[in-house]
Amino acid sequence: MHRTDSLDRFMADVRAGLRASPKRLSPEYFYDALGSRLFEAICQLPWYPLTRAERALLERHAEEMVAPFGEGASIVELGCGSGEKLALLAAPLCKRLPRLDVHLVDVSETALDLSRRTLSRLPRVEVSAHRARYEEGLCAATARRLPGADGVRGGGGGPVLVLFLGSNIGNLDPDAAAAFLADVRASLRAGDALLLGADLVKPAAELLLAYDDPLGVTAAFNKNLLSRINRELGAAIDLRSFDHRAVWNAERARVEMHLVSRRRQVIRVSAIDLEVAFEEGESIWTESSHKYEPGEVVHMGERAGFRCDRQWIEEAGRFSTTLLIAEERAARR
């Protein structure tokens, strides 16, 4: 993705989001260089157990998770972050394969750089990086495959393992999550696989503490979205005029993050010639993080054309990782 394409899309999404009702901005824009670093800090906080729970599962079960994949297999990670989790899964494959092709997909150049450095510790790994949205990056990563039996193009002749970890699926509402999994399946052949990480439903107090930590790191992560608009789009938003707020929506099983205006104000974004008025207490909705029951993850995958090969649940019941195998498609008439 070219820088100008990325900036143009950011401008268009900010314009549309701030003119919407309710106002909203996509969480993908959290992850500039500073935002990526802040998220890495969040993952170290004692009140945010998601990353540690997932890592515990991967450390214990990585060999089982990649056991079905042999010579010629490749890995595509959507939303690579620091690459530490990917390295845990790639390591057992590196021990038994002469070569492993890995494709990194992320909108953050910082995340791509971090992942490249992490994977450089492993032998016989060939890394390709795609700065793109998930669907675009997956298509680019699989574009050179020859057509398979189900007619899907998309690396060499071996199976592809797609990683969608960190409960990134939780950032999508249920309809968007279903559509996303269907798009992933459409890019794969029968026998390819998706390893899907999902955060599980927990007590509300525990969830809210994870998204509104006492140190204020999550608040800084959320407010950095406004700072990014200032830096890149020529705005002059007073960050002190907005508060970070996390809300547990029990009916929809999601944590919502908002930036709440502390007073009546007008913000100006010069790069897109936009003025936006806020009432006191009016918010910008920046993220929804959906939580799941284990069976819901399996059913979601099955509806998209996968079958569940195996599911692992962290000992404390905080997190699940599910290996979904792409099934044969019905023959076209």
Rank of each mutant, 00 (worst) to 15 (best):
M1T: 11
M1F: 10
R3G: 13
D5I: 03
D8T: 13
F10I: 08
A16G: 15
A16I: 09
R19S: 12
L34T: 14
L34I: 15
A41E: 14
W47Q: 14
E54Y: 04
R55S: 06
F69T: 02
A73T: 09
I75M: 14
V76A: 07
C80D: 00
G81L: 01
A90C: 06
A91M: 09
P92L: 06
P98V: 06
V102Y: 01
H103L: 07
L104I: 04
L104E: 09
A111Y: 10
R116N: 10
P123T: 11
E126Q: 14
E126I: 14
V127I: 10
S128P: 05
A129P: 04
E136D: 13
T142F: 01
R144M: 06
D150V: 04
V152C: 07
R153K: 09
G154E: 04
P159E: 14
P159T: 06
V162Q: 00
F164R: 00
L165T: 12
L172I: 07
D173R: 12
A177L: 09
V201P: 00
G216Q: 03
V217S: 10
A220H: 06
K223F: 01
K223C: 04
L225G: 01
G234W: 11
G234R: 13
A236W: 11
L239F: 01
A246G: 05
A246W: 01
N249T: 09
N249Q: 12
R252M: 03
V255K: 05
M257R: 06
H258D: 12
L259E: 02
S261P: 05
R268L: 05
V269F: 05
S270R: 15
A271C: 02
L274M: 13
I284H: 03
K291E: 04
E293M: 06
V297Y: 10
H299G: 07
E302F: 14
A304F: 00
E314S: 10
E315C: 07
G317Q: 07
R318V: 09
R332D: 08
R333V: 13
